[in-house]
């Protein structure tokens, strides 16, 4: 079966407020999807709700992964099924080095012991590709990292954990041109016919170096338009205004 993620008629509340209002989305194996939309449309909510962040309450609809309902699974079990999320604001965790954290995460996600020597070598190779300072790996997880370092660290984790589906929540926001290019490079390094990516962004830059299969426009809690990469150009030129009107 090719269907990896299937979201049907998803309604989500944050507190009392409904943020997603009947969202549908299907991602097949091997595909790269982009979700664009204005601020406050519910893009980050979508990422969080797939990982079942308890702050977001599903009131209706289903989330299936490889044909199984995951909407009530604990976040760590969803991670073990092969879904990864790159955070917009990665948390700082003092007292644990980035390297040790990667080892723990790899072990938890795969359920297998990590072979230290090979693992370190693999991590170092990815770090070189991502142009990450080699000292970063010994520093406490995200503590005192610059914005760019945090985002690169997210991409590093994606490469190391090698999920079936990676959801990148505005990984490109706040990054300079070079860093955006590095993030794109990381995504291309990760991507194969066997896995899928969902890129959430309101920035066109990151898409120029990626092969995008589908673009969705998310406005006011719903996907109002689905198209191919061509749609990006239209948005770049005309903005979201006309899609907001579609919604009305």
């Amino acid at each position: 079966m090719n269907k990896l993620l299937e979201i049907k008629d998803l309604h989500v509340n944050v507190g009392e407020k409904e943020i997603l209002k009947g969202l549908n989305l299907t991602i097949n194996k091997g595909e790269t999807h982009v979700i664009m939309g204005p601020n406050g449309a519910g893009k980050s909510t979508l990422a969080n709700v797939v990982l079942n962040n308890p702050e977001y309450k599903k009131t209706k609809g289903t989330v299936e992964f490889e044909g199984k309902d995951i909407s009530n699974l604990a976040t760590n079990k969803i991670a073990k099924k092969g879904i990864f999320m790159s955070f917009q604001s990665p948390q700082e965790i003092p007292g644990i080095s980035t390297m040790n954290f990667l080892k723990v995460a790899k072990n938890k996600v795969t359920g297998k012991p990590v072979r230290i020597f090979e693992f370190k070598k693999e991590v170092q190779e990815y770090m070189e590709e991502l142009n990450v300072n080699s000292k970063l790996i010994d520093r406490n997880l995200n503590v005192g990292f610059s914005g760019g370092e945090k985002k690169k660290n997210e991409i590093l984790q994606m490469l190391v954990l090698n999920p079936k589906l990676a959801i990148l929540d505005e990984t490109d926001s706040g990054l300079d041109v070079d860093a955006v290019r590095t993030v794109s490079k990381g995504i291309n390094l990760y991507k194969s016919n066997e896995n899928s990516v969902l890129i959430i962004t309101h920035n066109m830059k990151i898409l120029s170096e990626l092969k995008v299969d589908y673009v969705h426009v998310l406005v006011d809690g719903k996907i109002v338009k689905k198209g191919t990469a061509e749609l990006v150009k239209d948005i770049e030129k005309n903005g979201f205004t006309k899609y907001k009107q579609i919604d009305k």
């Binding site: 962040n53 308890p54 702050e55 995460a105 938890k108």
Partner: peptide, 8 residues
């Protein structure tokens, strides 16, 4: 949530 998303 961040750590749980990494399998913990």
């Amino acid at each position: 949530f961040y750590l749980m998303s990494r399998g913990l």
